[in-house]
Design a protein around this nucleic acid. Sequence first.
DNA 1: AAACTGGGTAAGTGGTAACTTACGGTAAGC
DNA 2: GCTTACCGTAAGTTACCACTTACCCAGTTT
Lengths: 123, 123
Amino acid sequence: MTYGPALQALADPTRRAILERLRGGPSPVGALAAGLPVSRPAVSQHLRVLREAALVAERREGTRNIYSLDPRGLEQLRQYIDSFWDEVLERYKEAVEQDGPQKKEGGNHARSKRTGGPQKHHG
Amino acid sequence: MTYGPALQALADPTRRAILERLRGGPSPVGALAAGLPVSRPAVSQHLRVLREAALVAERREGTRNIYSLDPRGLEQLRQYIDSFWDEVLERYKEAVEQDGPQKKEGGNHARSKRTGGPQKHHG
DNA sequence: AAACTGGGTAAGTGGTAACTTACGGTAAGC
DNA sequence: GCTTACCGTAAGTTACCACTTACCCAGTTT
């Protein structure tokens, strides 16, 4: 569970832009750089970081390197986030039990909608 | 969906350590700094970043500031990760359909275990 | 073989982020 | 009121990161 490199990789906007462009499918380096406001070597360096974080995978095809999204890094990130989710759920329930019934805020301090309140989403 | 600040906040190991310490429940600043290898002002600055990323919440209690985990930032992060998950699933299936049946690699190129292969985990 | 395409690496630079010490400001205790 | 905890902010320093240009290497084409 080495989520550190993945989190550090995702901190950079340019690297996130690279991942966004990979949503449409695998792509060689040149095509990636063509759609970004930085030079091709910069993209190469970013791809290296993303690869070491297991967020992208590399595949050689003749003279070009095709990059694609790698599930492994995303999986590690998801596990990291989810591990906090359980904690935050616990603390949130505590706060609700102590704070909700006392104040008359309608009792929906723990919102039922997905956005806005914590919610178990994985088994 | 402003996942940028949250991702940038989580890139720093010290900030992640602060969040780890908040797993056990809310805590004042001094207690947090006591368990970390940096000075108290440094922790204060980190808490500011975490607060602006909606990863922690602040509550004043007399002369001390109690910090706790905030669900909102985590929710945004989860949505961001999950948005990639769907894409990576699609690409992965494509790769398996094209690569798996042709090569005789045992057919388990798409692994069934949760760690190692992409998997739908949210409705 | 020579030329071309595609891409990773090296070296250098500017900006920024993380940390420190010093200070100021508010609430509690004697 | 004065002192003592608790904490945020200011100013300054250092280290790292993203980017650029220049260079080099592998594979393709004619």
